[in-house]
C-alpha cells in the first residue's frame, strides 16, 4: 500500500485525491486480496463511482454508493442472491464482451481460440485425401459448436478460400456465424486469388501476429 492511500479500517480505503486509474487499481487489489469481505471506499468524484461500478460488475459483485459531504462512499460486497457461487446472471451484460483470456471464470466458449492454417492439407499424405481431411476437420469443429475467434489462412492455406475449393463452404459458414476468416494478403497475391476473395477477408502479417499472440488457444491442424 503506497503512502497516498489511507486504509482507515480493515476494510475501508480512502482514495480521495487520487487520479485515474489509481482508485480502480487500488480497489481491485483490495478485492483480489479479500474477495469474501465487504469493502468500503471513499472517492472524490462521480467518475470514480461509475468506474468502480464497472469494476464491481466485472467481478460479479454488488455496489452501493451514497454522496457525502466531501465525496462519495462506495460499498462493494458479494452479490447476496448469488451466495458464494457467482451466478451467470450477475455479469451477463458486462461480461460477454470481455475477451476470454481476461476472464477469471471458466465459461465454455472458444471465442479466443485461433485456428492457424498455413497449408491446404491436413498433415502430409495423399493429396486429395489430405485436402478432404482438412474439410472434415473444419466441419467437425463447426458441428461441435466451437466458434474460434479467427481462422487465419496463410501460404497455400489461402487456396481454401478459392470459390472452387471444397473447403470454402465451411469457411463461409464460420464467417457467417461470427468467426473472422482472414487470408494473408501477400499469399493471396502470390497465388493469384485476389479477385476471388472479399477485400475485408484479406489481412496482413501484422494482424495475423496480433491474433496469434493474443489467442488463448492456438490450433494448427
Amino acid at each position: 500500500m503506497s503512502s497516498d492511500t489511507k486504509q482507515i479500517g480493515p476494510n475501508t480505503l480512502d482514495l480521495r485525491g487520487l487520479m485515474c486509474p489509481e482508485p480502480v487499481l487500488k480497489t481491485k487489489k483490495m478485492l483480489d486480496q479479500n474477495p469474501q469481505e465487504p469493502l468500503e471506499v471513499l472517492v472524490d468524484s462521480q467518475v470514480n463511482v461509475m468506474n468502480l461500478t464497472r469494476l464491481a460488475n466485472s467481478l460479479g459483485l454488488q455496489l452501493q454508493s451514497e454522496e457525502e459531504q466531501d465525496g462519495y462512499k462506495v460499498t462493494i460486497k458479494k452479490n447476496e442472491e448469488a451466495g458464494s457461487q457467482i451466478s451467470p446472471h450477475t455479469h451477463d451484460s458486462s461480461r460477454k464482451v470481455v475477451p476470454e483470456s481476461r476472464q477469471s471464470n471458466s465459461e465454455k466458449s472458444s471465442s479466443s481460440s485461433v485456428v492457424f492454417i498455413a497449408k491446404d492439407t491436413f498433415g502430409e499424405g495423399d493429396r486429395d485425401f489430405s485436402v478432404n481431411l482438412l474439410n472434415v476437420f473444419l466441419q467437425t469443429i463447426m458441428q461441435a459448436g466451437h466458434r474460434p475467434q479467427a481462422i487465419l489462412l496463410a501460404n497455400s492455406g489461402v487456396r481454401l478460400m478459392d470459390p472452387d475449393s471444397s473447403v470454402r463452404k465451411v469457411l463461409d459458414e464460420f464467417h457467417d456465424s461470427g468467426s473472422q476468416v482472414l487470408a494473408c494478403g501477400l499469399c493471396v497475391e502470390y497465388y493469384g486469388l485476389k479477385e476471388k476473395i472479399k477485400p475485408e477477408q484479406i489481412t496482413n502479417m501484422y494482424a495475423i501476429c496480433e491474433y496469434l499472440f493474443s489467442a488463448d488457444k492456438l490450433i494448427t491442424p
Binding site: V24, L52, T53, R54, V97, R102
Partner: peptide
C-alpha cells in the same frame, strides 16, 4: 457495432472501469 475495430484489451479494460472522465 460488430465491425468497430478496438485495441486488443480495450473491451476488457473498459468493463473493469478504466474509463476516462472525458468518455462520461
Amino acid at each position: 457495432i460488430d465491425e468497430l475495430p478496438f485495441f486488443t484489451g480495450a473491451l476488457s479494460l473498459a468493463s473493469q472501469g478504466f474509463v476516462p472522465a472525458g468518455a462520461y
